[in-house]
Design a protein around this nucleic acid. Structure first.
Lengths: 325, 325
DNA sequence: ACATCTATGTCAATCGCTGGTCATAAGAAA
DNA sequence: TTTCTTATGACCAGCGATTGACATAGATGT
């Protein structure tokens, strides 16, 4: 493989000069610049990023740690992050923590070892001192961490409000909120709060079911849903805190002969592709994932440039009405 | 950040010795080994992978290039690849080519720059000389490439056979095959062939529709499906070449008042999570994605170790029967 | 007593690139 | 003419490891 030296030799310049054009440093004549580019192409030269990173003490790689790659929410997030990273010349190192503390920690160590420019962390767990003394920015998504550089969240409270208001406006009289994925912490609580506040205000019967017992990895909520519907028989409106759960609610309803949306209305959360692939398709609370991803990457970039970034960013959510309500 | 030198100094050893324990080289007493580990922990030492890779001329990173991260098939594949990579101490660099030749090519260059241990490529496109003279193994998934090191495929022909046989066994008399994602090349053709061969053999009316006109990125096949059902009105069985398409067929059927599976039977492909989240859930042809992913990573590992690997590996598919047939 | 094995030290080159310090030289501006 | 700007050369010390050659020395085996 051709090296900088080869390029220098072939173009009759010195490594210093060639490095200058590569890094846009110092004075370079247009002519020289062109010559260097030509030779680079001729030799099929690719700068060795390892050497570069070693020298600069920083790579242009961003670590992304998610608990669950196949979950459509994270798949969507990862896709958006990759796009945003690409636009800013970063690469994505992907890690799947499976929601396990040890793996999360191990991945953080790997990120250190790889001198990443920053880490984007989507975590369900509570871990504190592990994230201290990092030499790179740590951006959390949908979770705030004191030790982190910045947190990017959605207005979960408003999501809950929107969902409840929508169901009520559609004529529901007895609501059920089903928590689920990434819900151990604040985000879920806030959705629930928003939901419950509206129910109280409007004097609507409601119930909320915690999700900790759900089998998250398998995304299998059927039996829990069944149990809940048994427990709250008069329910005519369900607010599920993810589209995956909502889809399963639809399935359970079908099995029970409950027509959606006539007899039962269902609203999901996230607006991932499954929401629009079910029959009926699912009304949901949309998170601006793309914008969140761009913001996250941009923050890493800016912190790297010595800039200041807001420690918390709250994004608005919107209701997308479809066939399930 | 602590360096090898620091560890050496602190433990009263030399860098050479410390490096030996890090790389399991030469003679090291158990006592010394332990001391080094202790000091490493004490100083919170993380080996600098950049330096290591530079020196070894190879990183323990694997590039994964997919056309579409959010598509559930690739999400599933990526998840499996990450797991397999982790098990073998590799990290995943994720690239989303969006099915564009230029990006694919650019990503390959980035992989070169980053001295990856290997690349796993999922591509829709036909590109030849770009993949010549790579200094790392190139493993393709669901596509064979002469220039690649190895290809990992599924028995697509058999998938088509299983689908057709199943629909026929369930009493369908007029079949429709809808091509779709990742179908420009061989895999799709083979599914179609298997499907058609069975139809011919059993003297069943059938039609196959090409997919090139579909909007792949948006995963929006509705209007095409509508058009097809108009064109082939007697259809009572559809073989869609992905679960995403099958889900949309279900939706179109619902809109048309066609009951599934009574009046129309639908079978998908891939067995990704959406297949089990629709109502009814979708009978599908399952690809052993996990095994394929493990094989791909294992191959890179083995090629790196100087071993020989089969240039083509064919995995079996199985039929998963659910509610749509 | 001699050979061998084990365990470490010493020294230094190498990987490919960055970026600083100086020196040089031509052309432009004062 | 002198000063300044532009453009490049020359040189080289890092960055943080790896790895090889060679030396030393105690322990073990025969």
């Amino acid at each position: 493989m051709a090296t900088l030296k080869d390029v220098a030799r072939r173009s009759g310049l010195t490594v210093g000069t060639v490095s200058r054009v590569l890094n846009n440093r110092g004075y370079i004549s247009e002519q020289t610049r062109q010559r260097v580019y030509d030779v680079m192409k001729e030799l099929d030269y690719q700068p060795n990023e390892m050497a570069r990173s070693l020298s600069k003490k920083r790579s242009n790689t961003i670590g992304v740690i998610v608990p669950h790659v196949v979950h459509p929410y994270f798949a969507k997030l990862i896709g958006s992050l990759e796009q945003a990273a690409y636009d800013r010349k970063y690469k994505i190192l992907l890690f799947n923590s499976q929601g396990k503390d040890e793996k999360e920690e191990e991945y953080i160590e790997m990120c250190k070892s790889n001198r990443v420019a920053g880490v984007i962390l989507c975590s369900d767990t509570f871990q504190t001192d592990k994230f201290r003394n990092l030499r790179f920015p740590l951006i959390t998504i949908e979770r705030f961490l004191d030790e982190g550089t910045a947190g990017i969240e959605c207005d979960n409270y408003r999501g809950g409000v929107l969902a409840a208001e929508h169901l009520i406006a559609k004529g529901c009289t007895s609501l059920l909120h089903i928590g689920g994925i990434r819900n151990h912490r604040k985000p879920a609580d806030e959705r629930k709060e928003g939901f419950e506040d509206v129910c109280k205000r409007e004097h609507i019967k409601y119930a909320s079911v915690e999700s900790s017992q759900f089998i998250y990895d398998e995304m299998d909520y059927y039996s829990s849903i069944d149990r809940m519907l048994d427990e709250y028989p008069g329910t005519d409106g369900v607010f599920a805190s993810s589209d995956v759960i909502a889809a399963q609610v639809l399935q359970v309803c079908a099995r029970r002969g409950l027509r959606v949306p006539e007899q039962m209305k269902v609203i999901g959360y996230d607006d991932v592709n499954v929401a629009s692939l079910t029959t009926p398709d699912i009304t949901t609370i949309r998170q601006p994932v793309k914008e969140m991803a761009e913001t996250a990457i941009a923050m890493i970039d800016r912190v790297a440039g010595g800039e200041m970034v807001p420690s918390r960013s709250l994004f608005p959510v919107t209701l997308v009405e479809r066939g399930s309500t």
